[in-house]
Simulated assay, not measured.
Amino acid sequence: MEGDDSAAGSSFGPLRYVQEVKQLYRHHLDRVTPQTRGRWLGFFVLQALFLTRVIAWGGWYAICYTLYIFQLNQFLAFLTPKFDMSLQQDERNNELEAGGAPDEQSEEFRPFIRRLPEFKFWYNVTRATLLALVMSVTVWTDIPVYWPILLVYFVALFMLTMRRQIQHMMKYKYIPLDIGKKRYSAE
C-alpha cells in the first residue's frame, strides 16, 4: 500500500508542475494561432527590441548574424513548395520520351503547399529571437567579431539565395505570398 502512496505523491511533485507549465504554454499557443497580425506584430516588436539591444550596447554581432542566418533559412523554407516541382517535371518529360501521351492533369490546378507552414515559421523565428534576446543579456555570449564583414557576407548570401528562389518561382510559375492574388468576396 505504501508503494501506491509514493507513486501518487510523485505526481504532485515537480513533474506535475512541469506538466501544468506545458499545458499552460500550449493553451496560450492555441489562443494566438488564429491571430496572425497580432503574432507577427509581437515578433517585430521582439526584433526591434533585440536590434535596439545590439545597437545600443554595441555587441553580440555573432549572435545577431546567427539569428538572421537562421531566419533566412526559415524564410526560404516558407517560400519553397513542399513538393519539388522540378522532379514532377522530370517525371513528365520521362513519360513523354517513353512514348506516353501528354498528361492532361499537368494543367490541373495544384494548390501551393508550403514546406514550412506560416505558424511554424512564426513560431521558429520568434523562439530564435527570444533566445537571441536572452543570450544578449550576458557578456559571456558577446564574441568579438568585426561586424562589417558579417554584414557584407549576410547581404551577399541573402541576395544570392533570394535570386535563386525568385528564379525558381518564375520557372515553375508559383507565387507563395498572397500579394497581388485575386480575392473573391461572397456576394
Rank of each mutant, 00 (worst) to 15 (best):
Y153V: 13
H27L: 11
W60I: 04
L157P: 00
K22W: 10
T80F: 04
W60Y: 11
I143V: 13
F112N: 01
S106K: 12
F158D: 05
Y146P: 02
D103T: 09
A128N: 03
R31M: 12
A132W: 01
Y123W: 15
V125I: 12
F119H: 07
F158N: 09
Y65M: 08
E97F: 14
D84F: 06
G100W: 08
N94Q: 13
K120A: 15
W40M: 08
I63S: 00
E95W: 12
Q47F: 13
G38L: 12
E104Y: 04
L67H: 00
R92T: 07
Q71D: 04
D30G: 11
P81Y: 01
K22P: 03
D103I: 06
W122V: 03
P102Y: 07
F70T: 01
M85K: 14
C64A: 15
G58Q: 15
N73Q: 08
A77L: 14
V134N: 05
G100F: 07
Q89R: 15
F78M: 09
Y61S: 05
A156T: 07
D90C: 08
L116W: 02
F75A: 06
V32T: 13
L150K: 02
Y123E: 15
K82Y: 12
L116S: 00
L76A: 09
V155F: 12
H27Q: 11
F154I: 01
F75D: 01
M135H: 01
E97G: 06
G42V: 01
R127F: 15
Q89G: 06
Q88N: 14
T138C: 10
Q74S: 12
T138R: 09
T141A: 13
